[in-house]
């Protein structure tokens, strides 16, 4: 594979204490990459560096083998969907979508606007004003506007964070369908793991300005490269000391165990069920060990009751060396 978008040692320094990068990342043509991380991890900065709104202090950014590091945003041909959409309130939907088509004659422009609106299922909405639309419709107009000039890369900044939770899942599926239909190389930023896993072909996890790991959702969950990735992605029991050793760890190791990789048995680490949270198909149990550690175990809803004395064993553990966060 040759990279269509590549960041090579890109670094941005906000202050001596806050530095993003160096980040290196290669993205294939047509691939959807999610940048996932807690707030302040630098994921938005990486996106803005790609868009050209920030200039890196070091490193190189290339799109389709063209060095765009010093190119202003207007000449990068990156479509962007902003967190709050940034639809121009003084223009109607049609004018918003046509904004990036200034170079094209009127007829061609109208055709492209209609095409872009059809893509997001908003045909006939041309003369509406942004404030007359629902949040989901605004999001789709923002997407149509970004795609209309046929950019080389699509950038999305927390594209679903402004929507009702009930709307998010459906919009996510539609978003992925549109992107795949257009076949455009896409980078998007999110702090929600479910969103990243659902939308991204690959996910890059950022922490404190560093790209910790890039991989498929399975990779990140099953084979996390660091303790941070292991704990940030998915639910995890983080254990040290005697409890860790009782579950198969050795001296100086931190164990990360997914709740579904723990189970109740007849013999193993003893503990007391403190809480039980019922979710329908399964239940989450909080088990307190004799050492005072708490373990989260997923099991059958009928496996135990609060106050029961149980024994726990681990099916699979992820081991990290102590002190390597």
């Amino acid at each position: 594979m040759t990279a269509f978008v590549s960041l090579d040692g890109v670094r941005k320094r906000w202050s001596p204490a806050t530095v993003v990068g160096p980040v290196s990342l290669e993205i294939a043509r047509g691939e959807i990459v999610a940048l996932l991380g807690p707030s302040g991890s630098g994921k938005t900065t990486v996106l803005r560096l790609l868009a050209g709104f920030e200039t890196p202090d070091a490193g190189r950014i290339a799109i389709a083998d063209e060095d765009v590091t010093a190119l202003p945003p207007a000449r990068r041909r990156c479509g962007m969907v902003f967190q709050h959409y940034a639809l121009f309130p003084h223009l109607d939907v049609g004018e918003n979508v046509a904004f990036g088509l200034a170079q094209i004659d009127r007829h061609g422009r109208d055709r492209k606007v209609a095409g872009a609106l059809e893509l997001v299922d908003l045909t006939g909405f041309e003369r509406r004003k942004p404030h007359e639309l629902s949040g989901g419709q605004q999001q789709r107009v923002a997407l149509a506007r970004a795609l209309a000039p046929e950019p080389r890369v699509l950038l999305l900044d927390e594209p679903l964070s402004n929507l009702d939770p009930s709307l998010r899942e459906r919009t996510r599926r539609e978003l992925r369908a549109v992107i795949k239909r257009v076949g455009i190389t896409t980078v998007f930023v999110t702090h929600e793991q479910e969103e990243a896993f659902d939308l991204g072909d690959r996910v890059g996890v950022l922490s404190r300005g560093r790209l910790e790991q890039v991989g498929t959702p399975d990779d990140l969950y099953e084979r996390p490269a660091s303790l941070f990735v292991a704990t940030f992605v998915g639910r995890a029991n983080v254990l040290q000391g005697p409890t860790a050793r009782a579950l198969g760890g050795s001296e100086g190791q931190v164990l990360v165990i997914r709740p579904e990789q723990l189970r109740f048995t007849d013999g193993g680490l003893p503990g007391l069920v403190r809480e039980r949270r019922y979710t329908g198909a399964a239940a989450y149990y909080q088990v307190e060990t004799e050492g005072g550690d708490r373990l989260e175990v997923v099991a059958d809803p009928g496996a135990a009751r609060v106050g029961d004395r149980v024994y726990v064993e681990a099916l699979r553990v992820l081991a990290f060396r102590e002190g390597h966060a």
């Binding site: 050209g52 940034a86 170079q103 000039p149």
Partner: peptide
Amino acid sequence: DPAFAEAAASLGAGRWATLRRV
């Protein structure tokens, strides 16, 4: 919202076009 000017830039508008149109 600074995002308006950035949106215009990402859609290919230069500095003067952004000033005039947005």
